[in-house]
Design a protein around this nucleic acid. Structure first.
Length: 453
DNA sequence: ACACCCCCTG
DNA sequence: CAGGGGGTGT
């Protein structure tokens, strides 16, 4: 009962911060956009309380019923000091009284033990509840006051019971703050499109976090996440992926990936073994959820959504470089196998593309088209419909004009070569490929942002 | 040796 | 779309 509670508090708090930050990416599809911060906060608290053990529920109740230790909405640090001072004076009188009654010393000792135990429990809980709000909520609303008061309370506790005032909350807050602040701003490319851009729901976590998401929602969702993890995110990945050894590795690779955050590692913070050692049931649940969510966010395999995205990319690039692929699929843990698979996909796309071109070129020759200028590829053309059906089956993506131009050029190339009888050369298509590969255009940034990756 | 591509096949 | 063979370039 010396420094270990304080250390635990700190580690737990750090875990919580990393966790809430790490969860951000899959948050927004689970939140009602119209939910106010306060309402959301309340909902989160309710969910959070469902994780409390019976003892903790009792403590929470006591907290509400004990005015001398309960944080007040309108309270301030000076108020706290004043009340603390009064409390001390009162206790001093009581102690003086009991000094003359030795038989009651044991009783008062028990009472004090109970109070201390309760304060520790409540303080640990208050750290969890207050951290994200302390970081970023600059508005002096009631919620903030409550959280700050809890923080002060907790700080006081650690100063008195841990004897090591340097490790405390401010450092943890600073670290957590850095995680939030360092998150790169997302560019909202979609607003520039003249047509309601299809949501581009490509990948497993296409529901990426909106940049200016209120902290309350992040905070709140961490708790909801803890509840849902066994049904939702966890079900997206195979159960075999969660052995303890891999957990720490995957978490670290997540942090170090081209991901939201700074390259700093939080090994201790993300170490599930450490969190399990804390013997806090709700922390354990969230540690599992954190690990699984991280796995969930960094795919080890390509999904059908990745395939859809790749097909749409084909409208811009027929021969994507590895770099482009990595930029557009940075939610995937790249390996030789993944790269090969992506390359193979585009190879298959090209194959279909060229087959269609050859087919329609020959068809045009048979139909007696005598001038290449008569060969066009419009959006109403049969050729385009065939291509669109293959690469954009849902027809929810606005195919760029540049693709129509490339298709037209390709069709004419095939037509010319065939009409000249060059298709007798076994490698006659190579010359066409050489032309077409130079017609790639840049993949729009929206394919490279976290919204789509 | 390796990466990448095309072609063929199922 | 994936697997595999064969070709080409570095």
């Amino acid at each position: 009962m010396t420094s270990s509670p304080g250390m635990h508090c700190n580690n737990v708090t750090t875990n919580q911060c990393v966790k809430s930050d790490g969860m951000q990416e899959k948050i927004h599809d689970q939140e009602d956009v119209g939910t106010s911060g306060f309402g959301s906060q309340r909902a989160g608290k309710q969910l959070w309380n469902q994780h409390l053990s019976a003892d903790e529920v009792i403590n929470t109740k006591d907290e509400d019923e004990s005015p001398e230790t309960s944080p007040r909405v309108t309270g301030s640090y000076s108020d706290f000091q004043t009340s603390s001072s009064k409390e001390y004076q009162a206790r001093k009188k009581v102690m003086n009284y009991f000094q003359s009654k030795p038989e009651r010393i044991e009783l008062i000792a028990d009472v004090l033990k109970y109070e201390l135990s309760r304060a520790v429990s409540r303080s640990v809980d208050s750290i969890f509840k207050s951290m994200p709000l302390i970081q970023t909520n600059t508005e002096g609303n009631a919620e903030t006051d409550i959280r700050l008061q809890s923080s002060v309370d907790q700080d006081e506790l650690e100063l008195s019971c841990c004897g090591n005032a340097e490790v405390q909350v401010p450092d943890v807050q600073t670290e957590a703050m850095s995680l939030v602040v360092l998150k790169p701003r997302l560019e909202n490319k979609f607003v520039h499109h003249h047509r309601p851009q299809p949501p581009i729901l490509f990948s497993n976590h296409d529901s990426a976090l909106h940049e200016d998401q209120p902290t309350e929602r992040i905070h709140n969702t961490v708790r909801q996440q803890a509840l849902r993890c066994s049904q939702d995110a966890c079900s997206r990945v195979g159960p075999a992926k969660f052995d303890t050894h891999r957990n720490s590795i995957k978490v670290r690779s997540k942090v170090n990936s081209r991901s939201v955050r700074s390259p700093q590692t939080h090994t201790a913070a993300a170490d599930p073994m450490l969190m399990e050692s804390l013997c806090l049931p709700h922390v354990k649940i969230e540690s599992d959820c954190l690990v699984k969510t991280n796995l969930y966010m960094l795919n080890e395999g390509l999904t059908t959504n990745h395939l859809k995205k790749a097909k749409l990319m084909f409208f811009y690039t027929r021969y994507p470089s590895s770099l482009v692929l990595k930029m557009c699929f940075h939610d995937v843990q790249f390996s030789r196998c993944i790269t090969s698979q992506l390359i193979k996909w585009f190879s298959n796309f090209r194959e279909f593309f060229y087959i269609q071109m050859e087919k329609f070129a020959r068809h045009a020759l048979i139909e007696g088209v005598s001038d290449v200028r008569g060969l066009t590829v419009g959006r109403q053309s049969e050729l385009f419909r065939a291509l669109n059906m293959h690469y954009n089956k849902a027809n929810d993506f606005q195919v760029p004009d540049s693709f129509l131009e490339v298709a037209e050029i390709t069709l004419r190339e095939f037509y010319i070569y065939i009409s000249m009888g060059k298709d007798r050369d076994p490698s006659w298509k190579k010359a066409i490929y050489k032309v077409i590969c130079k017609l790639d255009s840049d993949v729009p940034a929206q394919f490279k942002t976290r919204h789509s990756a």
